[in-house]
């Protein structure tokens, strides 16, 4: 589903990604952990086609993102750290607009259900987004990603700004995606959430994937220790 082959990205003299090799299979939730500047977002952006790798390949469903960008993007749904929407439109209008771009056309009721499932209060659905909190925008972003029915989900700190209840609901949603056979790659700082939802966990540092583990082989405490240990070493 998702494959990085010797993926390298340089910004001038700084190497953000060092020949990253990574695979996320169907139904798998892969959480990338690491400090700021570790290369998590760069990895996600390479798969999204927002940045062009200096060398190596990023494949989505076997499609090389650099070669066939629009085809690759058809298989991707994306939730950024801060979902930015059009402030002059309502939450529902934003969802209808962004989903219509993919060619989907559903009823108003369908979209309303999606927004409620994502955790947005019913009375906020028809309010302009300029009145939304960050968490509410995030929920619309989740609804947009859900509506696309993409086989690959790329998430960059998606629970940032979500309240604990919404975060738990989001974890449930990810599990559902996994059960549906979708591949999920999530960059996050949230060790707890990663341990809760991930199938596999990778820790990145200085643009390298320094360790990788099955999530069910570690508990929260062990994961935290491993993480801290890696952060201490140069």
């Amino acid at each position: 589903m998702l494959q990085a082959i010797a993926l390298t990205k340089q910004f001038g003299r700084h190497t953000a990604l060092h020949a990253l090799d990574l695979t996320v299979q169907k139904g798998e939730i892969f959480c990338l952990l690491g400090p700021n500047g570790a290369g998590k977002t760069t990895t996600v952006n390479c798969f999204l086609g927002f940045i062009t790798p200096t060398s190596g390949r990023a494949l989505v469903n076997g499609i090389d993102v650099a070669q066939q960008l629009s085809q690759a993007r058809q298989h991707i749904a994306y939730i950024p750290e801060t979902v930015m929407l059009y402030a002059h439109m309502t939450g529902l209008e934003n969802l209808v607009f962004f989903d219509s771009l993919t060619g989907n056309h559903h009823t108003r009721e369908h979209y309303t259900t999606l927004l409620i499932s994502a955790g947005l209060q019913e009375n906020a659905i028809n309010r302009r987004v300029k009145t939304y909190s960050k968490g509410m925008r995030q929920k619309v972003g989740i609804a947009i990603a859900t509506a696309k029915h993409a086989q690959v989900l790329l998430l960059d700190e998606p629970t940032s700004g979500l309240d604990p209840h919404a975060s738990n609901e989001f974890s449930d949603l990810l599990r559902r995606f996994s059960e549906e056979g979708r591949a999920v790659l999530m960059a996050t700082h949230d060790l707890y959430r990663a341990r809760e939802v991930a199938s596999r966990i990778g820790i990145m540092k200085n643009g390298r994937l320094i360790t990788e583990m099955e999530a069910d082989t570690v508990d929260h405490y062990t994961l935290e220790n491993i993480y801290m240990e890696h952060m201490r070493t140069v």
Partner: peptide, 14 residues
């Protein structure tokens, strides 16, 4: 700068 471009592109707009 607002980030909507990314979402537009991912949703299929070139």
């Amino acid at each position: 700068t607002s980030g909507t471009l990314g979402l537009l592109l991912i949703q299929g707009a070139s």
